[in-house]
């Protein structure tokens, strides 16, 4: 057993699959709630979190988790105060990314491989990383599984949830927390710039084949895992960057799904 995890490709594959499993159901909620830009803002804040982690000698996981949560709270606080939500998200997403890049440059003594955090460094995943990734993934899956129906009701309509004795604000907070965990877990695997892609693309591709929300989440998980493994395989043999390769495979799934959808709708 020890021998198995000694292989960097095995560790990378496990990291990719763990991230894809956690991202799939959450990605569905992000698609249904039209929160893609929210996901972007939270993911970009993770770069700031990396700087935070180095500055205060925290683990990268804790630093990114804190930054992602802080971003999510700022978005909620600023929404509905005169600016359009897309404007606020645009300001915060890019502001956080830029601030993160600047902050990282201030950190002395430690040489930070910035590219690793922007695009992921899945081939360098260690055993400790695997524990964090799978721990985070299992936590996210547990929360989403436990609250599935309530989250779905709150997604449909907050008042419908209130009438059924569910507080939709609580479900929103749980979703935000789960998103922050996925971001903190995924930054090592796929990088801050492409995390949203791993959330949204498998879910969007799965939509074509699904008749119920549950099926969409399961199919998205399948597409996500296949993309992770396919992307790794491609990166290994074609010597391409792993994170972007994974996203390219996912995007190919989406293109195929869209073509199938088009063909189905075409008049015969």
């Amino acid at each position: 057993m020890t021998g198995l995890l000694d292989d960097f490709m095995t560790r990378a594959a496990l990291a990719g699959v763990g991230t894809a499993l956690a991202a799939a159901p959450l990605g569905c909620f992000i698609v249904w709630r039209r929160m893609a830009y929210f996901g972007d803002a939270v993911a970009h804040a993770a770069v700031l979190g990396v700087a935070l982690a180095f500055g205060f000698s925290l683990s990268i996981f804790v630093g990114t988790l804190v930054a992602a949560l802080a971003m999510a709270l700022s978005v909620s606080a600023l929404s509905g105060r005169g600016h359009g939500v897309d404007t606020i998200l645009g300001v915060l997403a890019h502001g956080a990314l830029a601030a993160g890049l600047v902050a990282v440059s201030f950190i002395e003594g430690v040489r930070i491989d910035l590219e690793a955090f922007l695009f992921g460094d899945i081939l360098a995943v260690g055993r400790d990383d695997l524990v964090v990734i799978w721990g985070g993934a299992i936590a996210v899956l547990a929360v989403v599984f436990w609250r599935w129906s309530a989250m779905l009701t709150a997604t449909l309509n907050p008042d419908l949830a209130f009438a059924a004795g569910i507080d939709p604000r609580r479900e929103d907070r749980l979703l935000t927390l789960a998103l922050a965990i996925v971001v903190a877990v995924a930054i090592k695997v796929i990088g801050a710039l492409l995390i949203t892609a791993m959330l949204i693309i498998p879910a969007a591709a799965a939509r074509v084949f699904a008749g119920t929300p549950e099926r969409m989440a399961v199919i998205a998980a399948g597409i996500g895992c296949t993309s992770a493994l396919g992307g790794l395989y491609g990166a290994y043999y074609l010597d391409t960057p792993a994170g972007p390769s994974i996203v390219v495979v996912a995007a190919l799934f989406f293109v195929c799904a869209s073509l199938i959808d088009l063909a189905r709708r075409a008049p015969r």
Partner: peptide
């Protein structure tokens, strides 16, 4: 949302 697949039967299962 059009991205949310939901049959009438499944809708009745909420919450």
């Amino acid at each position: 949302d059009l991205t949310l697949p939901l049959t009438v039967r499944r809708f009745l299962d909420l919450p």
